[in-house]
Amino acid sequence: MSDNGSPLTITVRIQRFNPDVDRKLYLQDFKVAWQQGMTILDALHTIKAEQDGSLTFRRSCRHAICGSCAMNVNGRNMLVCEQPIKAHLNRKNEITIRPLPYLPIIKDLVVDRTTFWAQYMRVKPWLIPPENIPEKEFRMSPEEVAALQDAEHCIMCGACYSACTVVGTTKEYIGPHALLKAFLRVMDVRDSAPGERLADIAGSDGVYRCHTIFNCIDACPKHLNPTRAIETLRKLAQKRLAFEAARAERQKHLDKPVTSG
């Protein structure tokens, strides 16, 4: 029902493309009966079940934690599972859904993230721990956890990556998602290779490629701030040796209680 009580029919305009049969991209309109609480993902499911089973998209968890369903809606990247569709309708009750930009299309709304994952691998996303592992946990203060700025919440959905105009021009760029992962590792007091990591990302494909356009911040569904992380990495890269030395010093006491607060 619409606000005045009459049934509301919405138009969902979807970019379609199956490279095996289509010569070019096209937009297709589907009419859907809006229902209270309908998300954009619900509308896609309704279309797939009732109108066109070949409509292809990724999805899984339905609550913005698995990172499958990042798409471009009315020009903005977002996770469609957590978005009420009504908030994205124009005055004609239309919404336009396209796949994430700057990436090859596999089929309809499914994109090829090969370069995205290759850059993730490039930054060595795993922790490189010190040699002396304590019997129990490494001691880490709540403040040291807070310094990670929730970077560990990144769900690798790709919304930031494909909103980044630098990525649009070169896939050599490491990208905001992988730089945020590098930030997580560099800032973690348990990581013993921050110097190596900073040296790697300070190259021409790394932190200096970022033009601070802030698209990644706008796109991030988890409210993370890759731009700020990249800024921090830039500053640390300039005093890499001192940072490395401070880390080595901190790691001498990783098995000891911390004081905080």
């Binding site: 922790l127 721990p129 129990k136 946990e137 348990r190 990581d191």
Partner: peptide
């Protein structure tokens, strides 16, 4: 749990730095 911690899992902490 200690193994996860040693592999870099970010746990919430007590004031003295334990999990």
């Amino acid at each position: 749990v200690y193994e996860y911690e040693h592999m870099g899992c970010v746990f919430s902490r007590t004031p003295d730095g334990r999990v």
